[in-house]
């Protein structure tokens, strides 16, 4: 095994490095372009509404009081589903949503940090006490989806999940109070 110094001129080393640096620049620019283009053109943004709510009193009155939870269709036809994420359940345990229509999901926690995702969709948010987590989405398939708590919230964390019942639009009929509940299956 010889240890003769390899004969590579410093200028040649610098040249290859600059070439690679250009390659890295192109790669970084391409990655950023894809991310920025999809965010702008398809309106894909993380859930970031920065809306404060007091976790100690949110269940007493207002939007997250018990009678307001679940799915509501407003006078303008907007569908909003509200849930409380608490140790160790979602309240209510099931929400009904229409397929093929814009839906707003709103969550709040009265106790610790929770999080959720809905399987087979890209619905994903943390639920941090002190803030309302809000996700805009549109469901495309009529099926029962699993919505687990995905942030460790205590020893009962593994038992915390809810169901999202996606209904065809013609079966998604609000009652006189504008509310829709899960169908018994």
């Amino acid at each position: 095994m010889t240890d003769r110094p390899p004969e590579i001129h410093e200028q040649r080393i610098l040249g290859t490095e600059l070439l690679w640096a250009v390659g890295v620049g192109v790669l970084v620019a391409a990655t950023l372009s894809v991310v920025v283009f999809t965010a702008l053109s398809r309106d894909i943004n993380p859930p970031s509404n920065v809306e404060r709510i007091d976790p100690k009193t949110l269940h007493l009155s207002g939007e997250f009081a018990e009678h307001n939870l679940g799915t509501t269709v407003g006078p303008d036809g907007r569908v909003t589903a509200r849930m409380i994420a608490t140790q160790f359940m979602f309240v209510p345990r099931c929400i009904a949503v229409p397929s093929g229509r814009a839906v707003t999901l709103r969550f709040a926690s009265p106790d610790v940090i929770h999080g959720l995702l809905i399987t087979r969709t890209n619905v994903n948010t943390m639920v941090v006490p002190g803030f309302v987590a809000q996700v805009h989405t549109e469901f495309t398939r009529d099926e029962d989806l699993l919505m687990p708590c995905h942030e460790y919230c205590g020893l009962g964390h593994s038992e915390m999940w809810a169901t999202v019942q996606v209904m065809p639009d013609d079966r998604f009929k609000p009652g006189p109070d504008g509310r829709v509940s899960c169908a018994q299956r």
Binding site: V50, M126, V127
Partner: peptide, 8 residues
């Protein structure tokens, strides 16, 4: 990224 306490 998925947290509600920071803006986009």
């Amino acid at each position: 990224m998925m947290d509600p306490e920071h803006g986009n």
